[in-house]
Amino acid sequence: MDLDAFVSAHYGEWEHLRALSSRRTLSGAGADELLDLYQRAATHLSLLRSAAPDPAVLQYLSTVLAKARTASLRRRTLSWSRVADFVVRDLPAVLYRTRWWWIGTALVNVVVAVLLGTWVARNPSVQTSFISPAAAQQLVNHDFSNYYSQYGGADFATHVWTNNVWVAALCIAFGVLGFPIAYVLWNNVVNVGVQGGIMVAYGHGSEFFGLILPHGILELTAVFVAAGSGLRLFWSWVEPGARTRADAMAHEGRSMVVVVLGLIGVLLVSGAIEAFVTPSGLPTFARVGIGVLAELAFLAYVFVLGRRAVREGFTGDVVAEDRSATRPTAA
């Protein structure tokens, strides 16, 4: 085969194929032409590989074919507009749509933690059932406050972030079964309630709240969102409504992926506050104020942007073309 003559004869249609592949939209005739040129170019590549395997020509034609293949399949790529849709519409929509699940979860957990902490603080015998007096002294005088300053800020923020993301992911993953979420939340409530009760009993209540509130308000909200979302996933197959259980669970499961991705960002913020604000030398009111502002910003994000997105028809699910077919059901 005369390589130069072969390239000269077909270079024009290869370039035309490349030009068609670069267009954002194609007419019906243009799409047919692209597929026809793609098949011909693929045949040319096969011939060149067997008869005249010049590396430069093979690389060029392979690149043209790869681009044409992508164009023919119309594979979507990540764009800034899609990222903006996720942040402004998809995430707040699913958080708003599931608000009663995570608000209810938060209220129950806060009430239980307060009751448990009060019980521990008022009963020395209960305190010793959890921790010895010597260990309690070590906790209130050293361990609790030192926890927030024993590592470098960046390292501590990373550690806290990954741990909290893992807890949130477990809550959503356990949503398929439902009941394990109660176990995860109970461990969290016991940890906060018992430590808070012991700190209050030993006269360190202001220190406890001054260190836990700056980051804990947003951090616990994220955990409650994850747990509430997991419970919503569980309920989707217990009570699917007019949909089949498979369709209801598929819809909620896809939405929960959005929640997981969103909580990564929320927990990154709370982790940064815990690492850099909580142990800082700022006055207690300033540190707590930063935590409150972060929480208010999150709630505004959910109830302002989320309400608007839901009214516009967003649910947090993927676009219709990416969903599997669903069976029709009676209303």
Rank of each mutant, 00 (worst) to 15 (best):
M256G: 02
A157L: 04
A51V: 12
E207R: 05
G262D: 07
A29H: 12
V259T: 13
V160N: 04
D155Y: 01
S270Q: 01
V318Q: 12
V260I: 13
P180G: 04
V304W: 04
H251V: 08
L45Q: 10
L231G: 03
I273N: 01
N187R: 08
I172E: 01
A68Y: 00
Q150A: 10
D2Y: 10
D322A: 11
A309D: 04
A154K: 03
E252T: 14
L305N: 08
V83S: 08
S236H: 05
A51F: 15
F130P: 06
G313L: 10
G316I: 03
T315P: 06
N141Q: 12
F314S: 02
A246V: 12
G178W: 04
A330Q: 11
A201M: 02
Y147A: 11
N188D: 03
P133T: 10
L261F: 13
L116F: 11
R307W: 09
P283I: 15
F224I: 00
W119H: 13
S8Q: 15
G12M: 06
R75L: 15
P240E: 07
M256R: 08
L115P: 00
T105N: 03
T63R: 14
S280W: 05
I172L: 08
A51K: 13
S324E: 15
I198M: 11
S236V: 02
V304R: 12
W100F: 13
T244A: 08
L211V: 05
H251E: 13
L17A: 01
V114H: 00
G265I: 03
F276P: 01
A242C: 04
H204G: 02
L213A: 06
A246P: 09
D32S: 14
D32R: 10
R99S: 10
A136S: 12
R40E: 11
T118V: 04
A297G: 11
M249K: 04
Y147R: 07
Q127L: 06
E33I: 00
R308G: 01
D322G: 10
R307P: 02
A51E: 12
V83G: 09
R97K: 14
T278M: 05
L261W: 12
Q59L: 12
A300E: 08
A242T: 07
L95I: 02
I217S: 01
S132R: 09
T77N: 14
E252N: 10
L213R: 02
Y183H: 15
D317I: 06
R82E: 11
C171M: 11
L213Q: 01
L268A: 15
E207I: 07
R243I: 09
Y147G: 06
L115I: 10
A275V: 05
Q39F: 15
F156M: 01
A272S: 12
W80R: 15
A173R: 09
E207Q: 11
R243Q: 15
